Amino acid sequence: MKHYITKALLLLAGAVYTQTSQAQQLNSSKFMKTPESIIPFQQGYFITDLGAGGDPSAKDGNGVIWKMDKKGQGTVFATGLDAPKGTAIVGHTLYVADVDKVKGFDVSTGKQIFTLDFSATGTLLLNDLTKKDEHTLFVSASDINKIFTIHLDAGGSYEALKLQSDVRGANGLTYDATSGRLYACGFGSLKTQDGLIGYIDLKKQPDTFIPLSERKGFYDGIEMTANKKQLVISDWVSFEKKGILLLLDIASGKITTVKAPLMNGPADFTLSGNTAIVPAFLDADILRIPLN
């Protein structure tokens, strides 16, 4: 009996090790406060940081954009933002959603060279950005359940997608040029896990958000795999260390959970091959998580 108990304990220990060994912390120190979005650039990453307090709507001027190299060391790229979140790079400009403005920064100098003001819409929570083409972005506004098209030419302009129904807590966005689909997920109402994952077919009118699954959650980031067959979505699950990554098969709508340690606020991640690079918002870490 003792032999079997010992063997069972060893197997359990091995299982735990396999589970917890699938996440690697990439930042070499706690240089961030509340990292929200990460995007690859050259040999490293840009990371947006809401700053101390982590209030996503506060105009407090303590927001930072960091550059992190492959050794996990962070240097300041830009300061004086309020609560910077989603990012997109077009040409030599890094665009960032910051409370009620979309700001653009020269990727070489960190100098702000673009501002588009959304205050007239009533939003204080512009969230994710995704690129459509060299002249166009999409941005989500979580607090007013809307998604906007941004035209970058001539100083910038925008208009809301005329959706038949709102995307509750509109958050993560990713665009597939082949299908003309804008994939989106929602954080929901904040009070309950009622966000959805779906898409808007921009080749058809009217603009309609079509859910891909009935599963609800506190969804944040969304990306498409290289083969364009799956979506990867981050779900906070709760405001504790219970966050997970999901894989959604686009054709069937089937959802599976990526086997990885639970995260504390998995935010707007990026994909690198078959791994996700995920900001853990509430732990101030950047995690590398294999998807299989």
Score class of each variant (00 low, 15 high):
H92F: 09
E223D: 12
A177V: 14
L173G: 08
D201H: 06
I210C: 12
D285K: 07
K70S: 12
L291W: 09
D49P: 05
D235W: 06
K71S: 15
K103T: 05
G172P: 04
K162R: 14
Q205T: 12
W236G: 01
L173R: 00
S29A: 14
G122I: 12
T257W: 11
L231F: 07
T257C: 08
D283M: 04
D128P: 04
V102L: 14
R215H: 15
T257R: 15
Q25Y: 11
G180I: 09
D55T: 07
K67D: 08
A284Q: 09
T208E: 01
L282C: 08
F41E: 11
G172Y: 07
E36G: 10
K216G: 07
A160N: 06
S28G: 04
T48N: 06
L152Y: 02
S189Y: 13
L11Q: 13
G91E: 01
F269L: 06
V278P: 04
L262N: 07
I38A: 04
T256L: 11
D249R: 10
P266S: 14
H92D: 15
L291T: 10
A120H: 06
L26H: 03
G195R: 00
T79C: 04
D128K: 10
M263L: 09
V237G: 04
A177S: 13
Q230R: 10
G221P: 00
F239V: 11
L124C: 05
L287F: 00
A58I: 02
G155T: 07
L10W: 00
K111N: 14
I197H: 04
D143M: 07
L12K: 07
L124F: 08
L231S: 03
G198D: 11
T130I: 10
Q112I: 06
G198H: 13
D117S: 02
K85S: 04
L11G: 09
G169N: 10
T123R: 12
Q73C: 06
K67A: 12
I233Q: 06
S238H: 10
T121H: 01
E36P: 08
A184K: 06
S57R: 09
S21W: 12
E214K: 15
S140R: 01
K111E: 15
Y158R: 09
D106Q: 02
G180N: 05
E134S: 07
H135K: 12
L247F: 01
P35D: 05
A276P: 08
S142R: 05
L287A: 04
T79Q: 08
S238W: 02
N171T: 14
D60Q: 14
A276M: 13
M1H: 03
L94K: 10
L262V: 13
A260Q: 15
V96W: 02
D69R: 11
I39P: 02
T136G: 01
V96N: 06
K2H: 06
W66E: 01
G265F: 12
T174L: 09
N127P: 13
L12N: 04
C185Q: 03
I147N: 00
R215F: 15
D268H: 13
I65A: 09
